[in-house]
């Protein structure tokens, strides 16, 4: 207890009180003291160093405190990206649909006597022997059995095999049992396009019953002849990829690659009405 009664402690206490009073009063009155300025000047390098350390620590701690915010932001951005990807996807689908409709319009303008019914392909059954498309429209929309179906590029796909009120089934020209009267666009040589099992597996069909001297070459376009009244005349069936000679029948035949992209169809056009071809 002696120490607290000693002159030293009392003087120190008085000094502390005086310093507190004087400097507080000076600060409150707006006077900047010389001593404070000097102290600032002396400690400036150390302060700068400490501040640099502080900023480094701040950057380090900020990294951790920012992690949560960055995580949230990342999730938000991911959600935005997903949303934008959806939009891009739907825009792509709309563009493709638009493109298809435009092509359909071109086909319509090309064949003014045709009446079309655009239909979505709502199902596709890939069997061992044939491919059957299920279409989203039926008799209600005027679709009947044996009506031809074409793709938006004017290529023949096949025909309706069965029709309900709101649905229809169709097969394609590459299926076994299919036969379409056809001719070579360049030379007018005629024949019948038929589907064969092995060719069908490769997405091809066959132009048979050509004369042995028929003028046909690889690359020739094959069109529907209109004979039989099932198909209108002039629809593109495909292009010749190979020409062969059948020794038994003594006829030529050709392998045809269909013009319409039969696999992966999303919509087709059913030709509900057309002017029948009358052979002269």
């Amino acid at each position: 207890m002696k120490f607290f009664k000693s002159k030293f402690f009392i003087i120190t206490l008085i000094v502390a009180v005086s310093v507190a009073a004087v400097f507080t009063a000076m600060s409150l009155l707006g006077y900047s003291s010389l001593v404070k300025s000097a102290l600032h000047y002396i400690t400036l390098p150390a302060q700068k160093l400490a501040d640099t350390v502080g900023r480094a620590v701040d950057g380090y701690t900020a990294y951790f405190s920012e992690v949560e915010r960055i995580k949230r932001e990342n999730e938000e951005l991911r959600a935005q990206i997903d949303e934008m990807l959806d939009e891009v996807q739907s825009a792509k689908a709309v563009r493709e649909e638009n493109e298809e409709l435009r092509r359909m319009l071109e086909v319509k303008q090309e064949h003014l006597d045709y009446k079309f019914e655009p239909v979505d392909v709502i199902g596709r059954e890939d069997g061992n022997y044939m491919t059957v498309f299920t279409l989203g429209k039926g008799k209600k929309n005027g679709i009947e059995r044996d009506m031809p179906i074409i793709a938006s590029n004017n290529g023949l796909i096949g025909r309706i095999t069965d029709a309900g009120e709101t649905w229809a089934k169709a097969d394609s020209i590459i299926d076994m049992g299919s036969s379409v009267g056809a001719f070579v666009e360049r030379s007018r040589a005629s024949g019948i396009v038929v589907g064969e099992y092995e060719l069908g597996l490769k997405g091809l069909c066959k132009l048979s019953y050509l004369q042995s001297d028929a003028d046909i070459e690889v690359g020739d376009r094959i069109l529907t002849s209109g004979v039989g009244s099932v198909y209108p005349r002039g629809l593109i069936i495909g292009t010749v990829t190979e020409v062969k000679y059948d020794e038994g029948l003594r006829t030529k035949y050709a392998i045809i690659k269909p013009y319409a992209q039969i696999s992966g169809l999303s919509s087709v056009m059913v030709v509900t009405s057309f002017e029948k071809y009358v052979e002269e």
Binding site: L28, V35, Q47
Partner: peptide, 15 residues
């Protein structure tokens, strides 16, 4: 020193 370098105007820390 503390009140000079980082104080808020009051110099009560010495006491």
């Amino acid at each position: 020193l503390l009140d000079t370098l980082g104080g808020d105007g009051l110099t009560l820390s010495p006491l």
